[in-house]
Design a protein around this nucleic acid. Structure first.
Length: 249
DNA sequence: GTTCTAGAAC
DNA sequence: GTTCTAGAAC
């Protein structure tokens, strides 16, 4: 049985004491760690640091955070979002370096997470991974099902009416667990998948197609730029020649 | 969160 | 007979 409070212990520790194999980076207020069971090609968690047990209790989950002071909750979530945007750029650099193109990065919370301590998932939009093993794993990250809550959506609750905020902030596990049992459907094209092996093969095909499509587009763009550079250069040579000609006239 | 495995599904 | 899912884990 995995340790369900491991993230809480990280959040309370001095980041310098965490091994590099776990910790990716940190700031004054947050830690970015590698997800131990990545469900996409890139998958990180960003957690708010805690300096005391009471503070860690407040940060136990999205539900407990939203139950407390609203301004404080908004500040914590906004700070995590900021860190996620920085991380996203780093992921995109790595995508380019490793695969020659970049694709979407999702940033969101699980409505009812199984591990304690608030954590923001930052993962590439492919859901292609060895560790993606069952329906619950997949549906918990499917962007349209409702279990995975985009950070911007959560932040939008703060600007809505109080009654709406209260309704969303409940995050009752009973309401969300049904989402995880929904039939398997591809998040790219929506087609129904009869089981996990079929879904995984299909997701890999979708990613391969996307890679080929984006790379072909990049290549066309590169060739166009090369062509226009050549034209520009020859224009310059041409105009210089004209200038030289006019000088001699 | 994972591992294990009984029995359903094919 | 093999693949796959889904619930228990003392």
């Amino acid at each position: 049985m995995a340790n369900l409070t491991i993230l809480r212990t990280y959040a309370l520790k001095d980041p310098a004491s965490l091994p590099r194999s776990i910790l990716f980076s940190h700031t004054e207020t947050s830690l970015t760690i590698y997800d131990a069971f990545p469900k996409s090609m890139f998958h990180f968690l960003i957690l708010p640091r805690a300096s005391s047990k009471p503070e860690a209790n407040e940060l136990d989950s999205l539900r407990t955070l939203l139950k407390g002071d609203k301004a404080r909750a908004k500040q914590v979530i906004s700070a995590l979002r900021e860190d996620a945007q920085t991380l996203r750029k780093e992921i995109e650099d790595e995508m380019l370096k490793r695969y020659g193109f970049k694709w979407d990065v999702w940033t969101g919370f699980h409505a009812t997470p199984s591990m304690q301590h608030l954590h923001l998932h930052v993962l590439s939009a492919d859901l292609c991974s060895e560790k993606m093993k069952n329906k619950k794993h997949y549906n918990s990250f499917h962007p349209k099902i409702g279990f995975f809550l985009d950070v911007d959506e959560v932040l939008s609750w703060f600007d809505a009416e109080d009654s709406y905020f209260a309704a969303m902030a409940k995050l009752d596990p009973k309401d969300h667990e049904a989402f995880l049992k929904q039939d398997l459907a591809c998040f790219h094209c929506g087609s129904a998948m009869k089981n996990m092996p079929a879904l995984k093969a299909h997701l890999q095909e979708e990613w391969d197609k996307q890679a080929a499509r984006v790379k072909a587009k990049l290549e066309r763009k590169r060739q166009l730029e090369e062509k226009s550079d050549t034209v520009e250069n020859s224009d310059q040579v041409h105009s210089k020649k004209q200038k030289a000609d006019s000088n001699t006239q």
